[in-house]
Design a protein around this nucleic acid. Structure first.
Lengths: 245, 245
DNA sequence: CGTTCAGTTGACCATGATCAAGAGTGGTGG
DNA sequence: CCACCACTCTTGATCATGGTCAACTGAACG
């Protein structure tokens, strides 16, 4: 259990909307329960399950994914500290995809009723959670564009931009660098490419100086250039608080 | 304005969850306002707009799409009768994509406050709307798999299965046939293929007897076979009411 | 030390893209 | 009413992006 596991969520929500002191305190208290640890590469939630908790990632990276009958896998999203697994607080439905740990994970499970009660008591929290749900939908749409319309180089550049900005929004970056635990196989499953082709594409991105990526650490010396290479437009992340009302 | 524009939405929501008589009446009344017509191939909502209404498609087909700076377009979803455009009833955020009419459209615009009031008054409605939002998220995820992990043949077969089942759930099919207004270019933009390749792939699907598609009309003689061809698993549509609680 | 896993590189291949041309259809305006 | 235009579908020829198969390196780990 980390010292203040909830910080990333608070930080993210406050990027979206203002939170009153009581709302903030309530959110902090909510997650002030023991985090538990999931080993790297293990599943946190399996397809077909009906989880009674909403999981909050406190530390580490996870991914949503779906498998096809013949073993092909598609990663649908990456989850980083501050992300909530599934906001099914109103409806208990069967998972149609799985969530797997990339790295070792610290997570807390929040009972649905408790989150619901909190949302009922604090309209600001409701709004912040809605915002988070809408943003995650918006991300899904952008991923469709990524795998459907962009070239290999653009896909990877775009994904790197997205992850860097998301990490930045929860304070998990360090200047123009960040930890980056994804393997090339992970990148392949997220972008709809093969690991071999990801390797070659990363090679070219490195060659042209757009990224420095080694030892699970990513540096983006010139973000504007990488954004251009990935046709990246950050609107869909809705990181700008002023957009809200 | 059609005779009972709201039927598709009611029918769809009742597929998800039970509605009390008053809830049903309120939903019907909500849409008992004049529908207006959008010409085929016109935009209903443009990227960057902040719509004050939630639009309900009463008749016709529309699509969500995003454009890249160089003109490439990716269709993100198709909207059919009974579909609500954007459930931003809590948060007014700027559209990060556009919605365009495929065919001529009959739509009604429901003021956000009114839908919100209805949801507040009828918890069943809230639940049904949440369900609809979660299902649409689930569809987005499946589309990522479609364009990211499936072959051309699989993508098209999958899309045809999805649309047919969705049409069936609002009563817009006729045995194993349905109206199908998409052009091959539309299919291409939805599947991340070129129109030429869609043409050839459809040709092969027709050749093997999996589909009959001509004159904007689709017939699926053997749904099980088409599902197999598209690696289609209908779970993600959450059409089964028993899944709810 | 042997094993496993991530990364790398080369050779070759195939799916699907691109370019191009023509047929059929429907709509529109002179 | 007909000529013209635009759009959709179709097909062929050729190309390229990215996939497949395979072998090797180095690091991590028991």
């Amino acid at each position: 259990m980390t010292a203040s596991p909830f910080n990333p969520l608070l930080r993210k929500l406050e990027g979206y909307t203002e939170l009153s002191a009581p709302a903030r305190a309530a959110l902090t208290a909510l997650a002030a329960r023991p985090a538990y640890r999931v080993a790297a590469r293990r599943d946190l939630i399996r397809r077909g399950a009906t989880p009674a908790h909403v999981y909050l990632i406190c530390d580490g990276w996870a991914c949503r994914y779906k498998s096809l009958p013949d073993g092909r896998r598609q990663i649908l999203d990456f989850l980083i500290p501050g992300d909530l697994c599934d906001l099914n607080i109103y409806i208990l439905s069967r998972m149609d995809h799985s969530i797997g740990a990339i790295t070792a994970l610290d997570v807390v499970g929040i009972p649905r009723e408790e989150l619901q009660a909190l949302a009922d008591a604090h309209p600001q929290v409701t709004r912040a959670l809605w915002w988070q749900a809408l943003v995650s939908k918006s991300c899904s749409r952008e991923w469709i564009v990524n795998v459907g319309a962009r070239s290999a180089r653009e896909r990877i550049a775009h994904l790197l931009c997205e992850m860097f900005l998301r990490l930045e929004s929860v304070g998990a970056t360090d200047g123009c660098s960040c930890d980056f635990p994804l393997t090339q196989a992970d990148l392949a499953e997220a972008t709809g490419l093969t690991a071999v082709h990801v390797n070659r594409t990363l090679h070219r991105l490195r060659e042209t100086g757009l990224i420095v990526l080694a030892d699970r650490r990513l540096t983006i010396p010139d973000m504007a250039a990488l954004k251009a290479a990935g046709l990246f437009n950050p609107d869909y992340l809705h990181l700008d608080r002023s957009e809200g009302h």
